[in-house]
């Protein structure tokens, strides 16, 4: 990075790097982070699009060749495929060939007729809509806790607690909560004189049961966003509105909520993303069941590509592409809002 030029000893002439320092520095600083991000995030997106056009089980088969002096030829060994392993005339060459086969849009055509894909898509929609309940619920709790009394800080952090816990543990906790007979919910229902309810074992309720579990941490998250937002609400405006006779819902809708707009935007972003990323809870609580009724796209994709039901990487990638395109709508909207803000600088 130092000036190694020997021709010029004049102190006024600076080295090439020195002259371009301000233009070069950002790129040098960006390089490592950018490389990591490109290799692990940007390229894989393109690769997934590509993989979705293939039928592929994710495995590479060893290439076989005829051993010296065998009656079989190389071509015949290749033709045998995996069965060459049982043939004494063939031996592994140590090289591998991909088994991916280009099939164009066939994976997508198959998706159109796939009943499970349809169920997953519907469940995704349920998640998206119901998960948004976390925003008003979070606002409600935030309004409830937005007071100054002794110990309120501790209460606020304890209300926030569910968000800090991993979704795996939340899933376990709620699956015990829902246990038929022994679970807390069932015990309570029976104590009230109702019939027991096997929430997670019933295809009609299971998805709602899982969404309810997901709403617990998500509400806590929205609550903390709104608590921070409420700190910045102008008390003079509230007082002025009160003098003008604003009360109840009108007060909330016309005076408070407009001031909470930045918090609402972030709550919206994180809730949408959270809804479309739902995987952990489903995997822990029902593993997609009963009868595949709780699958969502993210879970179905994993099941198709990596679980005991088979390694259909191409088909899985096609599901992931669909999920990605849904997400892209929201991402584009988020970026557009950010872009407007940036121009306003």
């Amino acid at each position: 990075m130092t000036d190694l030029s020997t021709q010029s000893h004049s102190p006024t002439k600076r080295g090439w790097y020195k002259r371009h320092e301000i233009a070069l520095t950002p790129w040098l600083f960006l390089l490592p982070g950018f490389l990591f991000f490109a290799v692990y995030v940007i390229f894989p997106i393109a690769q997934s699009f590509n993989v979705s056009l293939y039928a592929w089980d994710g495995l590479d088969r060893p290439i076989y060749a005829a051993v010296e002096g065998a009656e079989i030829t190389d071509a015949e060994c290749t033709a045998l495929g995996p069965r060459a392993r049982g043939n004494p005339g063939c031996a592994e060459t140590g090289e591998f060939a991909s088994t991916a086969e280009y099939i164009g849009l066939e994976n997508y055509q198959e998706l159109l007729g796939d009943r499970n894909f349809e169920i997953s898509l519907w469940n995704n929609l349920k998640w998206l809509v119901l998960y948004l309940l976390a925003i008003p619920m979070g606002l409600f709790i935030a309004l409830f806790l937005n007071q100054t009394v002794f110990g309120i800080r501790l209460y606020k952090s304890l209300f926030f607690f569910p968000f800090v816990i991993s979704q795996v543990v939340v899933g376990l906790v709620f699956s015990w909560f829902y246990l038929p007979d022994a679970g807390l919910l069932d015990s309570f229902l029976q104590w009230l004189g109702f019939d027991g309810l096997n929430v997670l074992g019933n295809p009609d309720y299971a998805t709602y049961g899982i969404i309810a579990a997901g709403l617990w941490p998500q509400t806590a998250y929205c609550m903390i966003l709104y608590l921070t937002g409420l700190n910045a609400v102008d008390p003079e405006q509230v007082e002025a509105a009160r003098l003008d006779g604003a009360k109840g819902w009108k007060m909330l809708w016309y005076v408070i909520i407009p001031q909470l707009k930045p918090a609402t935007f972030i709550a919206f972003v994180v809730t949408i993303i959270g809804a479309l990323r739902s995987f952990d809870l489903i995997s822990i609580m029902t593993n997609g069941g009963p009868f595949g009724s709780t699958r969502v796209l993210s879970f179905y994709m994993f099941e198709k590509a990596l679980s005991e039901y088979g390694f259909r990487m191409g088909y899985g990638a096609a599901i992931a592409v669909v999920l990605f395109l849904i997400m892209l709508v929201f991402i584009a909207y988020f970026l557009w809002s950010m872009y407007r803000d940036e121009r306003g600088y």
């Binding site: 997106i45 993210s298 990596l306």
Partner: peptide
């Protein structure tokens, strides 16, 4: 900057097969 932000929002599943391969 937007590339970093957008990448942060993508569903994990679109990365799964290639990242596992890599």
């Amino acid at each position: 900057f937007f590339m970093f932000v957008a990448g942060n929002f993508v569903p994990f599943q679109i990365l799964m097969v290639p990242v596992r391969d890599l």
